[in-house]
C-alpha cells in the first residue's frame, strides 16, 4: 500500500509542479532570497565572531600605576595570577616614546611633555592566555595596591558587540518578514494547486481517500518548491562565499582585517541548515494550505 500511494503521490506532485510552474518558481525564488539573506547574515556573524575573538585575544590589559606603586611587588602579584601569559613593564618614558610613534609626523605636538613634565604614569601591559579571561583578570588587578586605573579597550569590544547585536536584530527581523512572505507564497501556490483539483479532491473524498492520501501530493509539492529555493540559495551563497574567501581573500588588505572562517564544518552546517529550513518552510506553507482547504 505504502509504495502504491507513494507513487500516486509523486505523480500528482509532478503534475502540479508543471501546471503551476511560474508561481512555484516565484515561491522558490522568494524562499531563496530570504534564505540567502539569512545565510549571508549567518556567514557575516560567524566571521564577525571569529574576528572578535581574534581582536579580543590581542587585547592587552593596561594597568596604570600610581607614582608610589611598588613595581616589584606588583610584578610578583601579576605572575602569581592564573591565566596571565605575559607581563611587560612600560615606564612613563617608554610610554611617551610609544605615544610619539603613534603620532608619527605630528610628534612635535608632544614636545613639551618630556622629563619632569611627562604626564603619563608607569604601567604594566598584561596579556591573558585566553580572551574570555580578560575581564576577570582586569577586575582582580584593579584591586592591587598602587593601581591607578585598569583598561583593556572594553569600549572597543563593547561597541563591536553592540554593533553585531543590532545587525543581528535587523537581519533577524528581515529574515522573519521575508520568511513569512515566502511561506505565504507557498500557501498561495498550494492553494492554486488545490483549487485546480478541487473536483478531483471531492471525488477522492467520496471514494474514501484518507486525508494524507489527498494531502500528500500537495505537501510534497510545497517541500519540493521549498527545497528548490533552498538549493538556489545554497548555490548562490556558496559560490559568493567561495569567491570572497579565495579571490578577494588573497588581497593582503582584506586578510589584514578579517580572517575568514573556512572551517568546512561551520560552513557546511550553515548551508545544510538552510536546505533544511527551505524544506521546512515549503512543508509548513503547504500544510497551512491543506489544513485550511481540505477539511472533510
Amino acid at each position: 500500500m505504502a509504495l502504491n500511494s507513494l507513487w500516486y503521490c509523486m505523480r500528482q506532485t509532478c503534475t502540479s509542479l508543471v501546471r503551476n510552474f511560474w508561481l512555484g518558481t516565484a515561491s522558490a525564488a522568494m524562499i531563496a532570497v530570504s534564505l540567502i539573506i539569512l545565510g549571508g547574515f549567518l556567514l557575516v556573524a560567524v566571521n564577525a565572531n571569529q574576528s572578535m575573538r581574534i581582536i579580543e585575544s590581542t587585547v592587552e590589559i593596561n594597568m596604570f600605576l600610581e607614582d608610589e606603586a611598588d613595581i616589584r611587588d606588583l610584578r610578583q602579584r601579576l605572575h602569581a595570577l592564573d591565566g596571565v601569559e605575559e607581563v611587560r613593564f612600560v615606564s612613563k618614558e617608554q610610554g611617551l616614546r610609544e605615544l610619539k610613534e603613534t603620532f608619527g609626523e605630528r610628534r612635535d605636538l608632544l614636545a613639551g611633555f618630556e622629563g619632569e613634565n611627562n604626564p603619563l604614569p608607569d604601567s604594566f601591559r598584561v596579556r591573558a592566555e585566553q580572551a574570555d579571561l580578560v575581564p576577570g583578570l582586569a577586575r582582580q588587578i584593579s584591586f592591587f595596591p598602587g593601581v591607578y586605573k585598569v583598561s583593556y579597550g572594553q569600549e572597543y569590544v563593547e561597541i563591536l558587540v553592540r554593533v553585531t547585536q543590532w545587525v543581528n536584530l535587523i537581519a533577524f527581523g528581515a529574515v522573519i518578514l521575508l520568511g513569512a512572505g515566502a511561506v505565504f507564497l507557498i500557501v498561495t501556490t498550494i492553494r492554486l494547486s488545490l483549487l485546480a483539483r478541487q473536483d478531483e479532491i471531492g471525488i477522492m473524498r467520496y471514494l474514501g481517500a484518507s486525508n494524507w492520501y489527498v494531502r500528500g501530493p500537495f505537501v510534497l509539492e510545497g517541500m519540493v518548491v521549498g527545497l528548490a529555493g533552498a538549493c538556489l540559495a545554497v548555490g548562490v551563497l556558496g559560490a559568493a562565499y567561495y569567491y570572497l574567501v579565495t579571490v578577494l581573500g588573497r588581497s593582503p588588505l582584506v586578510l589584514f582585517f578579517v580572517q575568514p572562517v573556512t572551517d568546512p564544518r561551520v560552513i557546511l552546517s550553515i548551508l545544510g541548515g538552510l536546505l533544511g529550513l527551505g524544506l521546512l518552510m515549503g512543508g509548513l506553507g503547504s500544510l497551512i494550505s491543506v489544513r485550511k482547504f481540505l477539511r472533510v
Binding site: M1, N4, S5, Y8, T15, D199, E200, G202, I203, M204, Y206, L207, G208, A209, S210, Y213
Partner: peptide, 27 residues
C-alpha cells in the same frame, strides 16, 4: 453517482483503478 464524478484527467482504467488505489490495494 448520478453525475458520474469521474476524474477528467484520468483514463477509464485509471478511474476504476483509483477506487482501489484509494483504499490501498496492491498494484
Amino acid at each position: 453517482f448520478q453525475d458520474f464524478r469521474l476524474l477528467p484527467r484520468k483514463t477509464v482504467f485509471e478511474n476504476v483503478a483509483f477506487a482501489l488505489e484509494v483504499i490501498g490495494r496492491p498494484r
